[in-house]
Amino acid sequence: MLADALFFSAVLFAIGVVGVLTRRNAIIIFMSVELMLNAVNLTFVAFAQVYGYAGQVFVVFVMTVAAAEAAVGLAIIISIFRHRHTVNLTDINLLKG
């Protein structure tokens, strides 16, 4: 089961990478990052089955960081939307030369 879990985790991570690269909506890119974090969590849990409970403890930390990241990131998105009235990343090009 370890190899199968790692396979599903790798595929989910790759799908998350594709989502980050192909979308322009900041919120959907953010959700793709969450999907990548979950794929890594699946890897941790799969290895915890082989190497003991430390992997599961680390998943708790990853979830905490993901929650904090979601709160701050969504606040940043709301702040950007308040100024620019868009969350489309190609329209947010103030620093583009």
């Binding site: 959700m31 979950n38 969590n41 849990v45 915890a48 089955q49 929650a67 979601a70 709160a71 969504l74």
Partner: peptide
């Protein structure tokens, strides 16, 4: 849950699907 991590599965549902996605 299938990988013997029942507690992690529970907080996955509670925290991720229940809290973070609601915020999104």
């Amino acid at each position: 849950v299938l990988l013997d991590a029942q507690f992690i599965g529970a907080i996955q549902v509670l925290v991720y699907a229940g809290a973070i996605m609601v915020v999104f």
